[in-house]
């Protein structure tokens, strides 16, 4: 099993008092499998994604990726996990503004120490970014920026790709285009995909779907 999450709890402490987002979520994903995580706003789907991506830590429960317990990792360990094992695509602002497109694409793989220029070029080509490699992110359209983000995430060949409404900020045609590219590439790379979305249509393009409601997996 690529990913197993067991009994995950998460509470945020805000100025208005504690705010419990996840109340015992269980989840599993196999390599090559794609899973859509759906739910209302505030159902905890983004938080769950962040916990799985090692961006934050659960209050309770166990997350195993490739048999490693990430809840037990320290900051460095989780950073290493983000570099090499998982890749995250956010809804927007994924890119490093001070680096050119080419350097953005290569950034994570180089951090992970497995930079493959040929693979990077291939990714850029498939994403239709070849003409934009020397540009800075702010010179690109939103759709182009998301494609760069996806290429960057896939560059280190992560075992698990996490995507948080990656096309939520794009118009429908562009979103469709970007989504197709991502699904193709993830499939080609043989990685697992966990995607947060509130679009049923999109969710149906993935192999499986889990619905969250009020911090728990709905039936």
């Amino acid at each position: 099993m690529l990913l197993t999450a067991t009994d995950i709890h998460k509470t945020f402490h805000t100025a208005d008092g504690p705010f419990t987002v996840l109340r015992g979520v269980d989840l599993a994903l196999e390599a090559g499998e794609s899973l859509a995580l759906t739910g209302e706003s505030g159902s905890g789907k983004s938080t769950l994604l962040h916990l799985i991506g090692g961006l934050d830590t659960p209050d309770q429960g166990q997350i195993m990726i490739n048999s490693a317990d990430i809840a037990a990792m320290d900051d460095n360990g989780r950073a290493a996990l983000r570099r090499g094992t998982v890749g995250v695509v956010f809804q927007q602002f994924n890119l490093i503004p001070s680096l050119r497109v080419a350097d953005n694409i290569a950034f994570q793989s180089r951090l992970a120490g497995r930079d493959d220029p040929k693979w990077n070029a291939d990714l850029a080509d498939r994403m239709g970014l070849t003409a934009h490699l020397r540009k800075y992110p702010e010179q690109l359209s939103g759709g182009q920026q998301q494609r760069v983000a996806i290429a960057r995430t896939l560059a280190p060949r992560p075992k698990l790709v996490l995507a948080d409404e990656p096309t939520g900020n794009l118009d429908e045609a562009t979103a469709d285009d970007v989504m197709s590219l991502m699904l193709d590439l993830v499939a080609d790379a043989g990685a697992g995909l966990l995607m947060v979305t509130h679009s049923i249509a999109l969710a149906e393009r993935l192999s499986r779907r889990v619905h969250l409601r009020a911090g728990q997996v709905a039936a």
Partner: peptide, 13 residues
Amino acid sequence: PQLSPAWAVGMTR
């Protein structure tokens, strides 16, 4: 905003 992407892809705070 400039630092978060770098953190997200694997650098520690």
